[in-house]
């Protein structure tokens, strides 16, 4: 009995430093954010914390608010719904465009093509570059003037003649015509932000999947080939099911990464209002508006959503056969 207790105490003592760090760095800030989300205060002006209950949540989730003096309804500029919708669009694009693309590249490279290592390095290179530099780089690519690579290319090919008027017709948020300002309109800004994200992280997911594919036992593949499986059948029935745990991790990273996305959007367009995401709204509320309670509320919503999506994805990828066994 004494020995068992001593053994458990040892385990506890060894885990204690990690536990303290985990609680101090992760759990405590989440609890503090949740506490702040029920208050309103200004750290710069050193105002007292005022308990506001669920008011911050009501403000963030109401597209329309009522002016207390006039009783008139008005559009709420701090509405979180649009930012969340943008995040979900990004998450969907990442899951259904970025990850399949990464998988295709990983499958092709893992077949031992010539220059495999070189291609791996090339595809992984954008991951190593600072996001701020990538933002600046793509800012130059999207530049609407003569310096912009994208518009210069479109003009050289004469595509701008029909593409720009077509995009203009689709723009309903502004009376201005589209003349190549990719980050200047609500209808184009989010897609313009997604493309660099796709470009940057496709290599990251590709590398994870590539490592998984390389781990598939050679005898499995040989047996399939001996049975006359085509390459597509090997990919579909052996490789993809085998790397399912890696695919799950990639989907979790892609979805939660989209929800937390901030740096590239901020670097790409200083005024993020046309492609507002929860994290950019949180930054504005905390540091520009100095509404620390409201900003903390966005943080809490983000944490809940990240956990929720991670759980849902884990459930979706649950191996039913293994559970039965």
């Amino acid at each position: 009995m004494k020995r068992t207790f001593s053994y458990k105490l040892n385990i506890f003592l060894f885990l204690l430093p990690a536990l303290i760090l985990f609680i101090g760095i992760l759990i405590a800030p989440i609890i503090m954010s949740a506490y702040y989300s029920f208050h309103e205060f200004n750290l710069v002006a050193n105002t007292d914390m005022e308990y506001v209950g669920l008011e911050n949540y009501r403000i963030l989730f109401s597209s329309m608010l009522t002016n207390p003096n006039t009783g008139k309804l008005y559009a709420n500029s701090m509405y979180l719904g649009d930012a969340l919708a943008h995040s979900l669009i990004l998450a969907a694009l990442s899951t259904f465009i970025q990850l399949p693309l990464a998988l295709i590249i990983a499958l092709k490279l893992s077949k031992g093509i010539r220059g495999e290592r070189t291609y791996l390095s090339i595809f992984f290179m954008p991951v190593l570059i600072s996001t701020v530099i990538i933002g600046r780089l793509w800012m130059n690519i999207y530049d609407p003037g003569q310096a912009g690579l994208l518009n210069a290319g479109l003009r050289a090919l004469g595509i701008d003649q029909w593409l720009f008027p077509a995009i203009s017709k689709g723009i309903t948020s502004s009376k201005l015509p589209f003349t190549g300002q990719w980050t200047g309109f609500r209808e184009t800004a989010l897609i313009a932000a997604f493309i660099p994200i796709l470009w940057q992280y496709v290599g990251y997911h590709m590398l994870l999947m590539y490592a998984g594919i390389k781990g598939v036992p050679a005898d499995l593949l040989e047996a399939a080939q001996l049975d006359g499986c085509t390459e597509g059948q090997v990919n579909r029935y052996i490789i993809i099911p085998y790397i399912k745990p890696i695919l799950k991790v990639c989907v979790i990273f892609a979805v939660t990464g989209s929800l937390k996305s901030f740096d590239l959007i901020y670097a790409l367009m200083k005024d993020t209002s046309r492609a507002e995401l929860p994290s950019t709204l949180m930054y504005k509320l905390l540091f520009l508006h100095q509404r620390y309670g409201l900003g903390s509320t966005v943080a809490v919503v983000l944490i809940i959503l990240c956990f929720l999506f991670a759980m849902l994805i884990s459930l979706a990828f649950r191996d039913k056969g293994a559970k039965v066994a």
Partner: peptide, 20 residues
């Protein structure tokens, strides 16, 4: 203007320039 009204004001100024 103080931080909160100033930034609300700026957000609508941006919408004016974007003809929104």
């Amino acid at each position: 203007m103080s931080a909160d009204p100033a930034n609300i004001y700026l957000s609508y100024v941006a919408k004016v320039y974007g003809c929104e």
